[in-house]
């Protein structure tokens, strides 16, 4: 049986009494999974990812990462997780290399390992020459690449990404998918939100569809989509639920 890395049970997040942003969401992400999380704008994707990342408190339910509770042992959870928000607001007053070194210090990555990984990923994403420049001078895509390298430095067991392909050039997007697969082969798990259904369909082995804070469908990509495209399934599921 696959080892669960992320277990979400009955997650409920209430911002105002009138509306539950996430309502009793339950799903499990196992080692080796590339799990796509899709839904309309305001469906609760980012709220779920933030709650899992331990930066947003929630009212009900439980989230466990690698067996640790996000509620009672957040630091242990964060130690094995990497989170990249949709708009990577990095420290613009640091250079790329200072930022990556800072992240490595925070996660306690050994000195030799960090140098090796920074070099490898910086070359892979073609940003090595810019690491000496201030992040404030970077384009959106370069910031996204820097955030990705930072997320990969400690080889996390769980990587949470909110719209990771937005802003990346086609080559970087291709490289990122390669890295995803490599990490999953090593036993990590990836849980990401996206609006690009085509990418989700080709890349993910599991898919979850969320609407109005509730999970509408989840499971193996093949099972969820059946003989149709993911786009058709997504639109049908939303339409069925609305009736």
């Amino acid at each position: 049986m696959e080892k669960p890395i992320l277990e979400i049970e009955g997650l409920t997040k209430i911002y105002t009494k009138a509306k539950r942003a996430v309502d009793g969401l339950t799903l499990t992400v196992c080692a080796g999974d590339i799990y796509g999380f899709i839904g309309q704008n305001g469906a609760g994707k980012t709220t779920t990812l933030r709650a899992v990342a331990g930066i947003l408190p929630f009212e009900e339910g439980e989230i466990r990462i690698d067996g640790h509770s996000v509620r009672s042992d957040p630091v242990a959870c964060k130690q094995v997780t990497a989170y990249i928000p949709d708009n990577p607001d990095l420290y613009e007053f640091l250079t790329g290399i200072q930022f990556l070194n800072f992240i490595a210090d925070m996660f306690g990555v050994e000195k030799n390992l960090r140098s090796e990984r920074i070099e490898r990923y910086a070359n892979l994403f073609r940003i090595a020459d810019d690491l000496g420049s201030l992040i404030g001078t970077y384009s959106h895509g370069m910031k996204q690449k820097t955030a990705l390298i930072g997320a990969l430095l400690h080889e996390p067991k769980l990587i949470l990404l909110d719209e990771p392909f937005v802003g990346l050039d086609p080559e970087a997007a291709f490289r990122l998918k390669q890295v995803f697969r490599e990490l999953c082969d090593k036993g990590s798990a990836i849980f990401f939100s996206t609006h690009v259904l085509d990418v989700a369909e080709k890349l993910c082995n599991k898919i979850a569809i969320i609407k109005g804070g509730r999970l509408i469908a989840s499971g193996d990509t093949q099972t969820v989509r059946g003989d149709e495209s993911l786009e058709q399934v997504f639109l049908e599921v939303l339409a069925d639920d609305a009736r």
């Binding site: 990342a53 930066i55 630091v75 990095l90 925070m106």
Partner: peptide, 8 residues
């Protein structure tokens, strides 16, 4: 969000 997601 970046800082608060650090393991400290």
């Amino acid at each position: 969000g970046l800082l608060f997601s650090m393991p400290v």
